[in-house]
Computed example of a mutant assay.
Amino acid sequence: MVVPDVPPTEVLALYSFVAVVLVLLVGVPTAFLFRYVRLGTECRRLARRLRLEWPLLFGALLVVGAWFGLLRALGSIPDTDWFLVGSAVFILGVFSLSVAVANADWYRATNLPVSETGFVREGPVQVSGEASPVDAPLTGPVSDEPCLAYAVTVQERRWLPNNHGSSRTEVPIALDSDATTFTVDDGTGPVLVDPAAADVRPTRPSAIVDRDVTVAVDGDESPPDHVSDSFDDLDIGQSTNDRRYREDHIQPGDTVHVVGSCRSVAHGYDRNRVITEAGDAPAFVTTSGDAETVSGSVHRLVRGSAGIGCTLAASGAILTLWLTL
């Protein structure tokens, strides 16, 4: 058994010095840049839009790691631009497939028969109709209007360095959402929806960048009073930078689409039927729009993501494997 020599004190000191320099010159600026551009907030905003959860993202990371581990076991990783291109294409393909998997439960839920709201039975259901609040509605932080559900994003313009000096980009600095109990009625009678455990999507699933209300405030201006009042809830303060306050919402009287599980309750509501957490249903999602519009949007999102993901992942895998072998 060969016992490795312990590095001398001078070598250990050099290692420590190099580590400290790397932390100060690379780690600290990188951490500051990530905080400055709010990369974590941007990722959370995108994940919320695409219904991507951490277990699924971790699984995608394992798939990517396993593939490159297999390539490493088959041969040495080539140091070429084409291998980098193939790797990027493969990773994008896995990400696109993750979007399809994340929304597959919603896809399956839209295949349920659409029930009349006045005659829903216990179990998995899919209903559409006019939404009405049960109690006092919420107030949208940006729109300052009655809402049954809302999702808010605050974006701030900040300067970022580049090859030409610097440029301005919009950085998400705050996210917020809320929903209240409401009823859905298609004309046959109302059914109660308790969105506490729901995935509430104020916009259609394929409308990733759409916003209902946008308030732009220049750095030398003050935002409207009702927007300023929401600063504490959003955990942001005043700023001299330009900002955009964006809100998606579902308002009383809007047409909404709900998939979930209907249950009977003994007391607490005027009616004894309520759509609540998924239960036996594939998913519990509330979004704006009628059944046909939402179903088509979900199908386009899932099929498009699956098709693009399969094409990119297969192309990237073939290219990286061919270059490795």
Rank of each mutant, 00 (worst) to 15 (best):
L175Y: 00
L319N: 05
T110A: 11
S206R: 13
V259N: 02
W67F: 12
T311N: 04
V154L: 00
E130N: 03
T30F: 11
V274L: 09
D79Q: 00
V120G: 11
R44D: 08
Y150L: 07
R121A: 14
S98P: 11
R303L: 14
Q251A: 15
V134G: 07
A131Q: 02
A216M: 03
W106V: 15
E116H: 15
G187Q: 00
T117I: 01
R300Q: 12
E53K: 15
L57G: 09
W67I: 12
R157P: 01
H164W: 13
A60N: 06
D186E: 01
P252W: 04
G189F: 11
D218A: 10
S87F: 02
Q251Y: 05
A283S: 05
T30P: 05
T286Q: 05
P205F: 01
V302D: 05
I250G: 12
N272T: 14
V101H: 09
R108F: 10
S230A: 12
P55S: 01
A109T: 13
V134Q: 11
T30G: 04
T180A: 10
L160H: 07
T324R: 03
V193K: 03
L138G: 05
V227W: 02
H267G: 02
R271Q: 11
V265D: 06
N103M: 04
V209L: 12
R243Y: 01
P161V: 08
D212K: 08
H257A: 02
G316I: 12
L192N: 10
A104F: 15
F90V: 04
S297D: 10
D105W: 14
S115V: 13
S98D: 01
R204V: 06
V215W: 01
V142A: 12
D81W: 06
L46E: 06
A216C: 00
L92R: 08
E10Q: 11
F119L: 12
V215F: 06
E53M: 13
V18W: 12
D254Q: 09
V127R: 07
V191N: 00
T240H: 08
A291I: 12
P161T: 08
R108H: 03
V184I: 12
F17A: 14
L24H: 03
W54K: 14
V21C: 04
D105I: 01
P124L: 02
F90I: 06
A151D: 10
D242H: 04
R44T: 14
A19W: 03
L12Y: 07
D210P: 09
V94H: 07
V3S: 10
R204I: 06
A306Q: 07
G69S: 00
H226F: 03
V2C: 06
